[in-house]
Design a binder for these strands. Structure first.
Lengths: 229, 229
DNA sequence: ACCTGAACACCGTTCAAGT
DNA sequence: ACCTGAACACCGTTCAAGT
């Protein structure tokens, strides 16, 4: 009665699986993205890795956008799974969740603009809920909760995505450190009357830690939330 | 002595220009992007609009990334030009600049991840400087200025880019309003013990104004900056 | 110095045909 | 129900040849 897909003997052992699941396809896509980058994820390469034809993938996935969205969601879900839900006080929990998302994006810089609030993305929902549920214990009154949640969640995903985008540009001979030095050099050479601030602040760029800057922003938002209580 | 490219008679009038500038190419690219979307900007379409061959574009532009980066920078530059530098007090100026970037991204939703701190992008530099130079008049001491600037600038570009990405998904039959209703419906149907916050907050989604939420986040960051003074 | 446009080496996606 | 792989309709990019 067509139960042939249930595990027979040890799962994934024995003969090559004759049927793929969407999860397996997404897993293989993530492996290619991590190892070779966004440009190397083609349906042909993915099919080759799965020992099948390109068309087979379309049975499980609507199109490439769907595939990338599923891959992104899987990565976010996995990042959330590393967080111990009850370990920390609410404020520290918000920082931990934020950094987990940031680190996940940093480790998988192919995550671009595949985010969206689109329905059905459970990883995103986990983050949304995890941040939002910490606001009441923090003493944020009901009327202020939505704005606080929105600012945090927008900041987390917006800045993490932008950082991932920056990370994507650091390739091969151009290290991140060298890139910051170059930008600092350009800024310090700007006209000091037209660009006084950038001229002055250029010195801060070398050695900058994006993760710390990300967290500093989270702390400023938290500070704004507290000061409004 | 090869001065043939200087304006002869009225510029852009008379016979078809025999030579294109990078600015003209970028302008034509923006026109296509705005009118027909990201997928319609091909080198063939762009060449057709400029009455030339595809290869000619490569004389002025390194590749498609370069073209998109230049288009993005042009849009940001133009948005900054609409801001009266001395009109408002520092705090209001920061809000005005933020909203100008947000609105520019919203009006040109093809702006995706073409941002980066890459050198030579003058539009970005204008925003960086305009935000940064408002911090001292606001009373932010030197030691706190970099973090405050970084949080604001990261938030502005990160959230504006993400909003543009969301706007890109609203096409044809699916209006933004309908999308929010759908998401609200999904969230309100989530398990109330596993997702209490989303369950509760779903009612806030319909009619949500992204621009107001964006500004609420700016205000929270400003609040955090002030409370640390 | 700049343009032309054919050619190259790919893509995502579809679909008749298989099992 | 799911796979196969050739075929279609494109792309970005290059480059010899032109002016």
């Amino acid at each position: 009665m067509s139960m042939g897909r249930m595990a027979r003997g040890s799962p994934k052992a024995g003969r090559r699986a004759e049927t793929r699941t969407k999860a397996q396809i997404v897993e293989a896509a993530i492996a290619i993205l991590d190892a070779e980058g966004e440009a190397s994820l083609t349906f042909r390469a993915l099919a080759a890795r799965l020992s099948t034809g390109a068309g087979a993938i379309y049975w499980h996935v609507a199109n490439k956008d769907d595939l990338l969205a599923a891959a992104t969601d899987q990565v976010v879900s996995h990042a959330m799974a590393t967080i111990d839900a009850n370990a920390a006080a609410a404020e520290d929990a918000i920082r931990a969740i934020s950094l987990a998302v940031f680190d996940a994006f940093d480790a998988h810089p192919w995550i671009g603009d595949q985010l969206s609030l689109a329905p059905g993305r459970s990883g995103m929902l986990q983050v949304f809920e995890a941040i939002g549920s910490r606001l009441e214990p923090l003493g944020v009154p009901q009327g202020a909760r939505f704005d606080a949640w929105s600012a945090l969640v927008n900041y987390i995903f917006g800045v993490a995505a932008q950082n991932a985008d920056n990370a994507r540009r650091v390739t091969g001979e151009m290290t991140r450190e060298a890139l910051l030095e170059t930008i600092a050099g350009n800024w310090s050479r700007l006209d000091a009357t037209e660009y006084p601030f950038l001229h002055e602040i250029a010195a801060c760029l070398p050695g900058l830690d994006d993760r710390e800057q990300f967290l500093a922003g989270i702390n400023l938002i938290l500070g704004g939330i507290f000061s409004a209580l």
